[in-house]
Design a protein around this nucleic acid. Sequence first.
DNA 1: GTCTATATATCGATAGAC
DNA 2: GTCTATCGATATATAGAC
Lengths: 230, 230
Amino acid sequence: MSETNHKQGPETRARILDAAESLFTTHGFEATSMRMITGQANVNLAAVNYHFGSKDALIQEVFRRRLTDLNRRRLAALEMAERAAEGKPLKPSRIVEAFFGVSLDMAADTEGGGATFMRLLGRTYTEPNAFVRQFLAEEYAEVVDRFMGALYDALPDVPREEILWRFHFMMGAMSYAIAGTDALRLFTGDFDDKDPARLAPRLMSFLLGGLRAPLPGLQAMDDSARRNAA
Amino acid sequence: MSETNHKQGPETRARILDAAESLFTTHGFEATSMRMITGQANVNLAAVNYHFGSKDALIQEVFRRRLTDLNRRRLAALEMAERAAEGKPLKPSRIVEAFFGVSLDMAADTEGGGATFMRLLGRTYTEPNAFVRQFLAEEYAEVVDRFMGALYDALPDVPREEILWRFHFMMGAMSYAIAGTDALRLFTGDFDDKDPARLAPRLMSFLLGGLRAPLPGLQAMDDSARRNAA
DNA sequence: GTCTATATATCGATAGAC
DNA sequence: GTCTATCGATATATAGAC
């Protein structure tokens, strides 16, 4: 900080990242221009390319700075549950709570920006942009490996593909839970917005109910046959 | 068809809609240009504005042409279940199967383009574009009213907000189910892509398990308190 | 590290000939 | 109804002064 000519210095990067995170969440990647970002961050238009190199690199950094911490905390929660089990197999509900509890903790952080980020993250799993998906998959590789391994051990009699799909379904439910009423308001005005603290127990009950549901029959009936049966 | 100068006539509209639906699904609305659409549809660039008026109007028509039929079929499935119940209250599982069964039927239609559309639709619930969300909410109003009313009657002892949230979670799980492995491949190469017919029973088991899950406690504990309890 | 000015490309939309 | 040509706005990115 002893040089000349850097009126805002290290704050500039963080201000750009905060503005980008917020605008990406509200408008999407493509609809958010560099001018919108630098305008909201109150920095010069050229600052984004100076600090990050390109818009795509900025997108990556918006995810990386939060995801590193989020996944570290998810792994820490899993390891804490494993230590508490003292070598015994983990209950599936403990594994689910480790993963989704940490996620909902971050989603509840409205001041620090975690809530904004989790809305963005939930949407980005189905984001069409190929390079964003590729980047996310790499960031998640270790966490998915660890949690899937734990669930395989906890549910040795359940086919692994069933576990994979159910975890995938749980991610979808969480994504919509976090998007909540900010997403499409199909259920207009009927949500209990006044008590967001209830969201976590609501979602967790639903997820565990889905995870523990009876396995579907092995026969792959088509839909109309299934609906007309018994 | 007795005029001059319309070499492709009524096919042009449909070809534009098909191309737009496919490209919107693959790249998103903003990243899909008119030139990409008219190029893939093999029509002139000016044809989109001639037939639809604007890009936004084209987006609306892409949804409208499929959603009208989809929601009509959903309502028909609900009415059929109600007739079969002969005045007795409907089982919640029948209601869920009416809504999501029809959805999965359309998602299984790969030749007619229904599968492409359902991927697009699932993503669009959380789409940031305001006018698209508004349009979707209007298209869904009647269906949501009818299905929510049926669920309220079927589950008179469950708080209505709980039902709303659980239906919302189910929509999220379905969205990810349909996006499937085309979305983010967190679970690399492990899905049983060879048997997509199993998806419907897989998802339906999960949804019903979640819907029937024990209700969360009324106390709104925060996450860490809940995880440390008992 | 910040800023202005600008290069270059692509966007949605439309006027007007056929 | 189709087509060419183009307008005007806006995008990302960068060169070069300070």
